[in-house]
Nucleic acid binder design. Sequence first.
RNA 1: GUCCCCUUCGUCUAGCCCGGCCCAGGACACCGCCCUUUCACGGCGGCGACACCGGUUCAAAUCCGGUAGGGGACGCCA
Length: 467
Amino acid sequence: MSDIRVRFAPSPTGYLHVGGARTALFNWLLARKQGGTFILRIEDTDVERSTQESVDAILQGMEWLGLDWDEGPFYQSDCFPLYKEHVQKLLDAGKAYKCYCSSEILDTKREQAMKDGRKPKYDGTCRDRTDQPADAPYVVRFRAPQGGVTSFDDLIKGTITFPNDELDDLIIQRTDGTPTYNFCVVIDDAIMRITTVIRGDDHVNNTPRQVQLYEAFGFPVPQFAHVPMILGDDKTRLSKRHGATSVIAYRDMGFLPEALMNYLVRLGWSNGDDEIFSRAEMIAKFDIGNVGRSASVFNTDKLLWLNAHYIKNGDPQRLAELLVPFLVERGIDPAAGGPLLAGVVKTLQERARTMLEMADGALFYYKAPESYDEAGMAKFEKAHLQAVYGAAAEKLTEATATTSPEFDAIFKDLCTENSWKMPQVGQPIRLALSGVMQAPGIGEIVVALGKEETVRRIRKALEAVSV
RNA sequence: GUCCCCUUCGUCUAGCCCGGCCCAGGACACCGCCCUUUCACGGCGGCGACACCGGUUCAAAUCCGGUAGGGGACGCCA
């Protein structure tokens, strides 16, 4: 048991997207590997944009992935008094000051600076102001050190140094008295005794300010690890316009949580040439130091490949349970009759890349074909089809045909007795049973369907070709 | 614009810290062949990259410098 403490701190302004999920995963992995503590904290200081729905969506996403936390969820909105108290401390120590500049003035100054090609930063108007306008609204700003540099060692990117003159006096408390993000993270991470801050690298620019805040309070500065972003296929920041980014959307598209986890862990991190990682393996092998420094592109093809792998090797019983909602969506209730779902799943495991594909492939088991693939039927003479169906129906009726070897024997007999070639028998039967040309092995289908239903479908096909 | 970061096959990456084993390895995708009663699975093979320029060195993907390109940040959002 180590005393490493990490946290995942999403802001509840939307669902859990894959980028956030990966950040959560890396935190979780580090905690689990080292026997540390993984804390979930909801950063909802922006009351305007935070919603309960988002909180629920985030928790749902984490639960689906199996990212369990040890403490929390804590809500920053519950801690306002604590932040206030710390703002006051800084004020009392002269390390923060009240600023009466209106946001309008600030905005115009910022625009002007951008236009002039200067870095837009607070000009320090109120930094040394001595008068205290009585009722004027104000924000509280941190009195950032001037001159010199602030640097920190990043576990992933190495040492990063910022000239202090690039940093301005950031607002730590808004006009309405609420604290701002950069201030809250520091207080929270310090109070929760976070030892390692793992977050997206869009935060590196915030880090020096936070370090200064830690130092102003005399808090120990945690270690930082900034993980690179996940990009869309056009190499820009992943967003809705790249398609699905929500973790739950992947579930609904028929992805397995272990596949998404495996994909995410390999995005930006690697362990030699290994591609497949079980939970236990990723925990055992994960090393934050092996995380790459550059952004990576989200590639659905590879995710699909991993998903296929986990479907192929999954437990049929569990897959069957996961498949039910997809079937119900297609108007089929496997519990209402028809072949045993786990048996159906077995015939589809090597063919489906997603549960959605599997559901589509499973439809014919529960709904006898009403029509037959025309191109497929057209390959055979009508008389041949009639002969095959007639002979097959007769032979199967006599047989037990409840196992695959049994069916194979019948199948072979049909071929030899009539001197037919395998495809001449196989394809017509496949058509009769599934209606389509691409389906699982006929033996598998027959076993799943059972003798009676098989015979029924062949007779139905016989009728169809006899009119 | 300013600051910070990044740069190996189309994509994910190994190798880089500790130069030679790398005319750069694996995986996905793609192409071909084999297996096969369909589709898939699987097997085998192919295509394909060290951003660029200079320097250091007997030797550089690996070290140093510069250039270019990309991303991020610059908010009383997080």
